[in-house]
Amino acid sequence: MTAAAPEHVGLVLVPDAMADDRAARHREHAARYTEPHRARRSAGIKHPVADFLFTYYALSPGKLERWHPGAGAVLTGAAAVERAAWKDHRSLDAAERDALGLSADEPAVTADVAGFLDRRSATVAFVRRLLGATASRPGQFGCFGLHEWAMVYRQDPDERRHEELPLRLSGEQTDAVVEAHRIRCSHIDAFRFFTPEATGRNELRPTRRTQPDLEQPGCLHATMDLYKWAFTLLPLVSSDLVLAALDLAADVREVDMRASPYDLSGHDLTPIRIETPAGKAEYVAAQRGFADRGAVLRRRLLAVLDRVTAA
Protein backbone atom coordinates (compact mmCIF):
# COMPACT_ATOMS: atom_id res chain seq x y z
CA MET A 1 0.00 0.00 0.00
CA THR A 2 1.16 3.54 -0.72
CA ALA A 3 0.79 6.16 2.00
CA ALA A 4 -1.17 9.20 0.85
CA ALA A 5 -0.01 12.62 1.98
CA PRO A 6 -2.48 15.28 3.06
CA GLU A 7 -4.42 16.67 0.10
CA HIS A 8 -2.75 20.10 0.24
CA VAL A 9 0.67 18.49 -0.14
CA GLY A 10 -0.31 16.23 -3.05
CA LEU A 11 2.45 13.71 -2.44
CA VAL A 12 2.36 9.92 -2.10
CA LEU A 13 5.10 7.89 -0.46
CA VAL A 14 6.18 4.81 -2.41
CA PRO A 15 7.67 2.18 -0.06
CA ASP A 16 11.20 1.10 -0.91
CA ALA A 17 10.24 -2.52 -1.63
CA MET A 18 7.47 -1.43 -3.99
CA ALA A 19 9.80 1.00 -5.76
CA ASP A 20 12.44 -1.70 -6.23
CA ASP A 21 9.86 -4.13 -7.64
CA ARG A 22 8.33 -1.62 -10.03
CA ALA A 23 11.76 -0.46 -11.22
CA ALA A 24 12.83 -4.06 -11.91
CA ARG A 25 9.64 -4.83 -13.81
CA HIS A 26 10.07 -1.64 -15.81
CA ARG A 27 13.64 -2.54 -16.80
CA GLU A 28 12.51 -6.01 -17.84
CA HIS A 29 9.77 -4.55 -20.05
CA ALA A 30 12.06 -1.89 -21.55
CA ALA A 31 14.69 -4.54 -22.30
CA ARG A 32 12.39 -6.06 -24.93
CA TYR A 33 13.27 -3.02 -26.99
CA THR A 34 16.66 -1.86 -25.72
CA GLU A 35 18.57 -5.14 -25.77
CA PRO A 36 17.78 -6.08 -29.41
CA HIS A 37 18.49 -2.49 -30.45
CA ARG A 38 21.89 -2.49 -28.75
CA ALA A 39 22.73 -5.88 -30.25
CA ARG A 40 21.85 -4.71 -33.77
CA ARG A 41 23.76 -1.48 -33.33
CA SER A 42 26.83 -3.34 -32.07
CA ALA A 43 26.66 -5.69 -35.07
CA GLY A 44 26.03 -2.88 -37.54
CA ILE A 45 22.66 -4.31 -38.53
CA LYS A 46 19.77 -2.06 -39.54
CA HIS A 47 16.11 -2.88 -38.99
CA PRO A 48 13.64 -0.71 -40.92
CA VAL A 49 10.85 -1.21 -38.40
CA ALA A 50 12.37 -1.51 -34.93
CA ASP A 51 15.18 1.04 -35.34
CA PHE A 52 12.60 3.77 -35.91
CA LEU A 53 11.68 3.68 -32.23
CA PHE A 54 15.18 4.92 -31.33
CA THR A 55 16.33 6.82 -34.43
CA TYR A 56 13.19 8.83 -35.12
CA TYR A 57 12.21 9.19 -31.48
CA ALA A 58 14.86 10.78 -29.30
CA LEU A 59 14.68 8.78 -26.06
CA SER A 60 17.89 6.78 -25.69
CA PRO A 61 17.87 3.15 -24.53
CA GLY A 62 19.49 4.16 -21.25
CA LYS A 63 16.87 6.79 -20.50
CA LEU A 64 14.06 4.43 -21.50
CA GLU A 65 15.34 1.95 -18.91
CA ARG A 66 15.05 4.51 -16.10
CA TRP A 67 11.92 4.01 -14.03
CA HIS A 68 9.85 7.07 -13.12
CA PRO A 69 6.83 6.76 -10.80
CA GLY A 70 5.26 10.01 -12.00
CA ALA A 71 4.34 13.37 -10.48
CA GLY A 72 3.55 13.31 -6.78
CA ALA A 73 5.30 10.03 -6.03
CA VAL A 74 7.96 10.25 -3.32
CA LEU A 75 10.92 7.88 -3.25
CA THR A 76 13.21 7.36 -0.28
CA GLY A 77 16.37 5.41 0.45
CA ALA A 78 18.73 4.42 -2.36
CA ALA A 79 16.21 5.35 -5.05
CA ALA A 80 16.08 8.90 -3.68
CA VAL A 81 19.85 9.19 -3.45
CA GLU A 82 20.19 8.07 -7.07
CA ARG A 83 17.60 10.59 -8.31
CA ALA A 84 18.69 13.57 -6.22
CA ALA A 85 20.92 14.85 -9.02
CA TRP A 86 18.57 13.97 -11.86
CA LYS A 87 17.06 16.76 -13.92
CA ASP A 88 13.54 17.84 -12.91
CA HIS A 89 13.74 16.21 -9.48
CA ARG A 90 13.88 17.83 -6.05
CA SER A 91 14.28 16.87 -2.41
CA LEU A 92 11.31 17.34 -0.09
CA ASP A 93 11.23 20.34 2.20
CA ALA A 94 10.73 20.12 5.96
CA ALA A 95 6.96 20.59 5.89
CA GLU A 96 6.55 17.87 3.27
CA ARG A 97 8.74 15.49 5.26
CA ASP A 98 6.68 16.14 8.39
CA ALA A 99 3.43 15.51 6.51
CA LEU A 100 4.74 12.13 5.36
CA GLY A 101 6.28 11.21 8.70
CA LEU A 102 9.84 11.25 7.36
CA SER A 103 12.86 12.20 9.43
CA ALA A 104 14.83 15.32 8.56
CA ASP A 105 17.88 13.34 7.40
CA GLU A 106 16.10 10.67 5.36
CA PRO A 107 16.64 11.04 1.58
CA ALA A 108 13.31 11.82 -0.09
CA VAL A 109 12.92 12.89 -3.72
CA THR A 110 10.00 13.64 -6.02
CA ALA A 111 9.49 15.07 -9.50
CA ASP A 112 9.94 18.84 -9.55
CA VAL A 113 6.56 19.68 -11.04
CA ALA A 114 6.81 23.44 -10.57
CA GLY A 115 10.32 23.57 -11.98
CA PHE A 116 9.37 21.46 -15.00
CA LEU A 117 6.30 23.59 -15.74
CA ASP A 118 8.32 26.77 -15.42
CA ARG A 119 11.17 25.52 -17.61
CA ARG A 120 9.00 23.88 -20.25
CA SER A 121 5.81 25.91 -20.16
CA ALA A 122 5.63 26.33 -23.95
CA THR A 123 6.07 22.59 -24.54
CA VAL A 124 3.43 21.68 -21.95
CA ALA A 125 0.98 24.17 -23.43
CA PHE A 126 1.57 22.84 -26.96
CA VAL A 127 1.20 19.19 -25.98
CA ARG A 128 -1.94 19.89 -23.99
CA ARG A 129 -3.50 21.81 -26.85
CA LEU A 130 -2.50 19.21 -29.43
CA LEU A 131 -3.75 16.20 -27.46
CA GLY A 132 -6.98 17.91 -26.51
CA ALA A 133 -7.70 19.01 -30.06
CA THR A 134 -6.91 15.57 -31.46
CA ALA A 135 -9.15 13.87 -28.92
CA SER A 136 -12.03 16.17 -29.85
CA ARG A 137 -12.10 15.05 -33.50
CA PRO A 138 -13.46 11.91 -35.14
CA GLY A 139 -10.90 9.60 -36.67
CA GLN A 140 -10.39 9.60 -40.42
CA PHE A 141 -9.76 6.18 -41.92
CA GLY A 142 -9.34 6.71 -45.64
CA CYS A 143 -5.63 7.40 -46.03
CA PHE A 144 -4.61 3.72 -46.47
CA GLY A 145 -1.03 4.49 -45.45
CA LEU A 146 -0.30 6.28 -48.71
CA HIS A 147 2.11 8.65 -46.96
CA GLU A 148 4.85 6.02 -47.30
CA TRP A 149 4.10 5.70 -51.01
CA ALA A 150 4.23 9.48 -51.42
CA MET A 151 7.71 9.44 -49.91
CA VAL A 152 9.04 7.45 -52.89
CA TYR A 153 6.81 8.86 -55.63
CA ARG A 154 8.86 9.47 -58.79
CA GLN A 155 12.02 9.25 -56.75
CA ASP A 156 15.46 8.10 -57.81
CA PRO A 157 16.12 4.74 -56.05
CA ASP A 158 19.44 6.07 -54.71
CA GLU A 159 17.60 8.83 -52.84
CA ARG A 160 15.11 6.68 -50.93
CA ARG A 161 15.02 6.88 -47.13
CA HIS A 162 15.26 3.07 -46.97
CA GLU A 163 17.65 2.56 -49.83
CA GLU A 164 18.48 -0.94 -48.59
CA LEU A 165 14.89 -2.10 -49.14
CA PRO A 166 13.52 -3.04 -52.56
CA LEU A 167 10.03 -1.98 -53.59
CA ARG A 168 7.24 -4.59 -53.77
CA LEU A 169 6.20 -3.24 -57.16
CA SER A 170 8.14 -1.61 -59.95
CA GLY A 171 8.78 2.11 -59.74
CA GLU A 172 6.17 2.75 -62.40
CA GLN A 173 3.58 0.60 -60.62
CA THR A 174 4.33 2.30 -57.31
CA ASP A 175 3.83 5.72 -58.89
CA ALA A 176 0.58 4.50 -60.44
CA VAL A 177 -0.78 3.56 -56.98
CA VAL A 178 -0.15 7.12 -55.78
CA GLU A 179 -1.77 8.60 -58.88
CA ALA A 180 -4.83 6.37 -58.55
CA HIS A 181 -5.67 7.53 -55.02
CA ARG A 182 -6.75 10.65 -53.20
CA ILE A 183 -4.03 11.74 -50.77
CA ARG A 184 -5.08 13.73 -47.72
CA CYS A 185 -2.23 13.41 -45.23
CA SER A 186 -2.78 15.55 -42.12
CA HIS A 187 0.48 14.89 -40.25
CA ILE A 188 3.40 17.28 -40.68
CA ASP A 189 6.04 14.68 -39.81
CA ALA A 190 4.82 12.40 -42.58
CA PHE A 191 4.11 15.15 -45.09
CA ARG A 192 7.57 16.71 -44.73
CA PHE A 193 9.12 13.56 -46.22
CA PHE A 194 6.95 13.57 -49.35
CA THR A 195 8.88 13.89 -52.59
CA PRO A 196 8.50 17.26 -54.33
CA GLU A 197 6.29 15.63 -56.96
CA ALA A 198 4.03 14.11 -54.29
CA THR A 199 3.72 17.27 -52.20
CA GLY A 200 1.43 18.89 -54.74
CA ARG A 201 -0.86 15.86 -54.75
CA ASN A 202 -1.68 16.19 -51.04
CA GLU A 203 -4.97 17.97 -50.38
CA LEU A 204 -3.67 19.44 -47.10
CA ARG A 205 -0.64 21.55 -46.25
CA PRO A 206 0.21 20.59 -42.67
CA THR A 207 2.78 22.72 -40.84
CA ARG A 208 4.08 22.71 -37.29
CA ARG A 209 1.95 25.77 -36.55
CA THR A 210 -1.23 24.15 -37.84
CA GLN A 211 -0.53 20.75 -36.28
CA PRO A 212 -3.12 21.16 -33.49
CA ASP A 213 -5.68 22.22 -36.11
CA LEU A 214 -5.21 19.19 -38.36
CA GLU A 215 -4.13 16.22 -36.26
CA GLN A 216 -6.78 13.51 -35.94
CA PRO A 217 -6.91 10.24 -33.98
CA GLY A 218 -7.10 7.90 -36.98
CA CYS A 219 -3.64 8.95 -38.15
CA LEU A 220 -1.01 6.30 -37.52
CA HIS A 221 1.70 8.91 -37.01
CA ALA A 222 -0.42 10.80 -34.48
CA THR A 223 -0.89 7.53 -32.61
CA MET A 224 2.82 6.68 -32.67
CA ASP A 225 3.61 10.18 -31.45
CA LEU A 226 1.79 9.48 -28.18
CA TYR A 227 5.05 7.79 -27.22
CA LYS A 228 6.96 11.01 -27.97
CA TRP A 229 4.58 13.15 -25.94
CA ALA A 230 4.70 10.68 -23.05
CA PHE A 231 8.49 10.65 -22.73
CA THR A 232 8.66 14.40 -23.40
CA LEU A 233 6.68 14.84 -20.17
CA LEU A 234 8.97 12.64 -18.07
CA PRO A 235 9.27 12.60 -15.07
CA LEU A 236 5.75 14.01 -14.62
CA VAL A 237 4.21 10.99 -16.33
CA SER A 238 4.86 7.48 -15.10
CA SER A 239 7.09 5.04 -16.94
CA ASP A 240 4.11 2.67 -17.10
CA LEU A 241 2.40 5.16 -19.39
CA VAL A 242 5.55 5.66 -21.45
CA LEU A 243 5.93 1.91 -22.04
CA ALA A 244 2.24 1.51 -22.89
CA ALA A 245 2.71 4.22 -25.52
CA LEU A 246 5.89 2.53 -26.77
CA ASP A 247 4.12 -0.82 -27.10
CA LEU A 248 1.45 0.87 -29.19
CA ALA A 249 4.00 2.76 -31.29
CA ALA A 250 5.85 -0.49 -32.03
CA ASP A 251 2.66 -2.18 -33.21
CA VAL A 252 1.70 0.82 -35.33
CA ARG A 253 5.15 1.07 -36.88
CA GLU A 254 4.99 -2.54 -38.01
CA VAL A 255 1.65 -2.02 -39.76
CA ASP A 256 2.86 1.30 -41.16
CA MET A 257 5.76 -0.44 -42.88
CA ARG A 258 3.83 -3.54 -43.89
CA ALA A 259 1.43 -1.23 -45.74
CA SER A 260 4.31 0.66 -47.36
CA PRO A 261 5.62 0.06 -50.89
CA TYR A 262 8.70 -1.71 -49.52
CA ASP A 263 9.39 -5.43 -49.70
CA LEU A 264 9.94 -6.54 -46.11
CA SER A 265 9.98 -10.28 -46.75
CA GLY A 266 13.62 -10.32 -45.65
CA HIS A 267 12.39 -9.30 -42.20
CA ASP A 268 9.61 -11.91 -42.11
CA LEU A 269 6.89 -9.29 -42.51
CA THR A 270 4.02 -9.90 -44.89
CA PRO A 271 2.71 -6.94 -46.87
CA ILE A 272 -0.63 -5.26 -46.40
CA ARG A 273 -1.45 -4.68 -50.05
CA ILE A 274 -3.30 -1.38 -49.76
CA GLU A 275 -3.48 -1.20 -53.55
CA THR A 276 -6.17 -3.93 -53.32
CA PRO A 277 -9.64 -3.86 -51.68
CA ALA A 278 -8.64 -6.64 -49.26
CA GLY A 279 -5.49 -4.78 -48.28
CA LYS A 280 -7.43 -1.58 -47.70
CA ALA A 281 -9.88 -3.40 -45.43
CA GLU A 282 -7.01 -4.98 -43.46
CA TYR A 283 -5.33 -1.61 -43.04
CA VAL A 284 -8.48 0.19 -41.88
CA ALA A 285 -9.26 -2.55 -39.35
CA ALA A 286 -5.79 -2.18 -37.83
CA GLN A 287 -6.07 1.61 -37.98
CA ARG A 288 -9.34 1.60 -36.04
CA GLY A 289 -7.89 -0.68 -33.39
CA PHE A 290 -4.89 1.59 -32.97
CA ALA A 291 -7.14 4.64 -32.72
CA ASP A 292 -9.08 2.99 -29.89
CA ARG A 293 -5.90 2.14 -27.99
CA GLY A 294 -4.52 5.60 -28.65
CA ALA A 295 -7.66 7.28 -27.31
CA VAL A 296 -7.11 5.60 -23.93
CA LEU A 297 -3.48 6.74 -23.72
CA ARG A 298 -4.36 10.25 -24.92
CA ARG A 299 -6.91 10.56 -22.12
CA ARG A 300 -4.34 9.36 -19.59
CA LEU A 301 -1.79 11.92 -20.76
CA LEU A 302 -4.37 14.70 -20.65
CA ALA A 303 -5.35 13.63 -17.13
CA VAL A 304 -1.73 13.97 -16.00
CA LEU A 305 -1.48 17.40 -17.59
CA ASP A 306 -4.72 18.52 -16.02
CA ARG A 307 -3.55 17.35 -12.61
CA VAL A 308 -0.10 18.93 -12.66
CA THR A 309 -1.25 22.23 -14.14
CA ALA A 310 -4.25 22.67 -11.82
CA ALA A 311 -3.98 25.84 -9.77
Rank of each mutant, 00 (worst) to 15 (best):
134 T>N: 12
84 A>E: 13
103 S>N: 12
119 R>S: 15
128 R>M: 08
135 A>E: 13
124 V>D: 04
121 S>R: 15
131 L>E: 01
104 A>N: 03
88 D>Q: 04
92 L>A: 09
118 D>W: 03
131 L>R: 03
127 V>N: 01
107 P>S: 07
83 R>H: 07
119 R>K: 15
89 H>S: 10
135 A>S: 13
79 A>Q: 15
115 G>Q: 02
128 R>G: 15
87 K>R: 13
95 A>M: 09
139 G>L: 10
107 P>I: 09
101 G>H: 11
103 S>E: 15
79 A>R: 14
91 S>H: 07
143 C>Q: 02
94 A>Y: 04
117 L>Y: 09
101 G>R: 10
127 V>T: 07
101 G>E: 11
81 V>S: 14
133 A>M: 07
106 E>G: 00
92 L>H: 06
97 R>Q: 02
129 R>N: 13
81 V>Y: 00
136 S>I: 09
133 A>N: 10
117 L>C: 09
117 L>S: 10
106 E>A: 15
117 L>N: 07
96 E>H: 02
79 A>W: 07
107 P>E: 01
131 L>N: 02
88 D>C: 05
113 V>N: 00
111 A>G: 06
126 F>G: 02
81 V>H: 04
127 V>F: 13
94 A>M: 03
116 F>E: 00
109 V>C: 01
128 R>N: 12
89 H>M: 15
91 S>N: 14
131 L>K: 01
102 L>K: 04
108 A>P: 03
135 A>Q: 10
88 D>M: 08
122 A>T: 09
139 G>C: 07
132 G>Y: 05
87 K>S: 11
122 A>L: 10
98 D>P: 00
85 A>L: 07
138 P>L: 13
87 K>H: 07
133 A>V: 01
113 V>P: 03
89 H>A: 11
91 S>M: 09
85 A>M: 03
142 G>K: 04
136 S>F: 07
110 T>S: 03
118 D>S: 13
102 L>C: 08
86 W>K: 00
135 A>M: 11
119 R>Q: 15
97 R>E: 05
114 A>N: 13
89 H>G: 09
